[in-house]
Design a protein around this nucleic acid. Sequence first.
DNA 1: CCAAAAGTGTTAAAGCTACACCCATGG
DNA 2: CCATGGGTGTAGCTTTAACACTTTTGG
Lengths: 210, 210
Amino acid sequence: MNPLVATVVVIFAVIEDAVQVLLVQRTAEPERGRWALPGGRWDGREGMDATASRKLVEETGAGGLYLEQLFTTSGLDREQPGVAVAYFALVDQARVRLREGDEWPPRWQRVDALPEMAFDNDSVIAQALDRVRAKLEYTNIAYGLLPEEFTVRELQATYEAILGRELDRRNFRKRMLSNGIIEPTGTRRREGAHRPALLYRFVSREPVFL
Amino acid sequence: MNPLVATVVVIFAVIEDAVQVLLVQRTAEPERGRWALPGGRWDGREGMDATASRKLVEETGAGGLYLEQLFTTSGLDREQPGVAVAYFALVDQARVRLREGDEWPPRWQRVDALPEMAFDNDSVIAQALDRVRAKLEYTNIAYGLLPEEFTVRELQATYEAILGRELDRRNFRKRMLSNGIIEPTGTRRREGAHRPALLYRFVSREPVFL
DNA sequence: CCAAAAGTGTTAAAGCTACACCCATGG
DNA sequence: CCATGGGTGTAGCTTTAACACTTTTGG
């Protein structure tokens, strides 16, 4: 008898300057009704990355901008042997349309105020967040969290939300530009009673190491 | 029908100043007789880390000094769906006793001159090596490759073998000491017609981030 | 006394951190 | 003209890289 294989996806977005995770309520036992990460059984007919990616689209309506495998754990469930392959994804909240009208709809939850969670899902989220934090420093993965065009200030707010600390405006701008991770689009955005902000885009929207 | 779950272990040692991997020859189809990474089916009765660790002991006779999960791939085999969970391990070659006398005994192979390998095992090895290289820079995982006591020169030779480039002796020593990775034992080792070398040990033989 | 590896310090360059003022706009 | 957020440069400090001579031993 072969073990059960499941995938689980930690979907992050920065909403209202806070890191939030997409959670669903379990519709099956065990732990029915409790908040949990979206995921499901892997049937082996498609690649596992494809399964995780499809799960992401099902939940968010938006194609995954960034999806990466985290790790695999065994023994979640006492009753039958199984492994869970965890992924994390970064999405731009503006593109997301959550499923509505279900009895138990999915919801964004701030990572700093999670509800009681099924299994060891809190620890999976914590590890995913650690990984995102680390990679933010030496890759361009932030592109997953932002729209095509954005201001330096918006980019900085995203970094600050994930890192959980404030950054210096001048140093941040310098670094992002000398890095070569962003470039100006040449246009500005007027909004409100102040100088308009220059708009930038990511030089590459593929994962790049610095 | 559930998919097959297997574990696979990339076992590294530095032997004769070269990074080497422990390989076995497949005794079963498909790809029977070809060189491959040690591993096997996971039966779900123990944790997966425990399975990988046991595999390591079976092959090397030595307890794994350092074992870390790498990633999980699906679709290795066309015929039946399955996933392979890859690990890598670091061992001190001096403690290893390979199984002998089998028809097809395991063998150390230099990573820079691998034989033709089964499945995509070369790429698993390449990714494992990348990970080791990266972690060498910001963790103390080198402890897995060395005995209790060693000279700074031996440590440096290990780093050089893995990184594939030469390092400056003075800077290396300074960094390792100011890091707090190693500490002197207070003893020296006489060997040959030259000044004896001070012996050092790792401050911690648990994984530590710098 | 010679050969062989061990041990040691300084200087320049680059990168990082901290910090304060002027600019463009809408109302 | 004022309030609001956008944009910019410099100086000190820390970190990294480059580099050569003296020490201890065995034979």
